[in-house]
Every structure is written in C-alpha cells, then in structure tokens.
C-alpha cells in the first residue's frame, strides 16, 4: 500500500484524537496484515468508493470509547452499548472524513459511505493487492486501532483519463 494513501489517515487520526481527547497520542504497533481482521473492541467500518477503493476500520475498547464520549460531550457519560457504538461511529466519521478531505484535495476522487458497526469478530480479509495496515494509537485513555485496506481503482482512473482526453 502506498504511503501517500496512508499518511493522511495518520495525520488525521493524530490531530482529531488530540483535539477530541485533549492529549497527545503516540503511534505504537504498526503491522501489515493479509489475514482477516480480528476485532479488538467496538469497531466501526467506513467503505470508500472511487479512484481509491477499500475500507477503514476504527476499533477501540468500550472504556476508551466512554472516555472519548465524555470528552466529546464535555461531561461524564454513563456506559451503555448505544453510546459506545455511537461514539466509535462518530470518531471514525471524523478521523476518516478528515483524511478523505485531504486525499480529495490532492486530486483523488472518491466517496465515503456512512460508518457502520463492524460486529463480526472477524472479517474483511486483505488480498494480494489490498494488504491492510494496522496501526495502534496509544492514548492515556487506552489504545485506538486503525485498520486501513485500500487500493487504486485502475479501471476508474483510466475511464476518467479517457473522458478528460476526449
């Protein structure tokens, strides 16, 4: 996977987590995986369609999610399944949305779909041309995982180029 596709997600996650959680983050483990994704806590998946195709998963444990929810609300929040799921979806929406903004402004044309809860314990295997990059952001409130699997959609790019030439 090309670094130019990944870097905006790292920058976005770093900036959004710092702003939302009022703390600095550190990138911990980074690995490339071709095996199916194994969920660690509550996960949200965002699908990407266009010149670039793939999906990004944001994954955090419920306690970290409640801390994020409290920070977003500016007041303590009681732990419930709904709040945890909503928090993870909203955080994914912000992190991935900001990264997508950077990539689109650099000339990559694609769309994101609304975040969806990733409830299966396993799923979303990589393939030969779509390895997944798994990154762990260490925060004082707990670890937050970002799993990115994307590839250039060659056919779509060729179609766009043909239209531009015509």
């Amino acid at each position: 996977m090309k670094m130019e596709l990944i870097q905006p997600f790292i920058n976005s996650a770093d900036a959004i987590l710092a702003q939302v959680m009022h703390c600095s983050t550190k990138i911990g483990d980074v690995s490339m995986e071709q095996e199916a994704y194994r969920r660690k806590g509550t996960a949200s998946v965002v699908a990407i369609h266009g010149d670039i195709e793939g999906r990004v998963i944001l994954d955090l444990d419920p306690k970290t999610a409640i801390h994020v929810a409290s920070q977003l609300c500016g007041a303590p929040v009681e732990e419930s399944e709904d709040i945890v799921r909503e928090t993870v979806n909203e955080l994914a929406n912000m992190v991935i949305g900001n990264a997508v903004t950077l990539l689109n402004n650099e000339g990559h044309h694609f769309k994101v779909l609304p975040p969806e809860a990733h409830v299966e314990a396993q799923g979303f295997a990589g393939s030969d041309d779509t390895e997944a990059l798994v990154m762990c952001f260490e925060t004082p409130s707990g670890d937050i995982y970002l799993n990115i699997a994307m590839r250039y959609n060659r056919r779509r790019k060729e179609e766009r180029a043909a239209v531009e030439i015509a």
């Binding site: 992190v95 949305g97 997508v100 689109n104």
Partner: peptide, 9 residues
C-alpha cells in the same frame, strides 16, 4: 457540518 470537507463537496 461534516467531517468530509473537500473542495468539490
């Protein structure tokens, strides 16, 4: 109000 704020959008 959106997290997706690229110029085209």
């Amino acid at each position: 109000v959106s997290s997706v704020g690229y110029q085209e959008n």
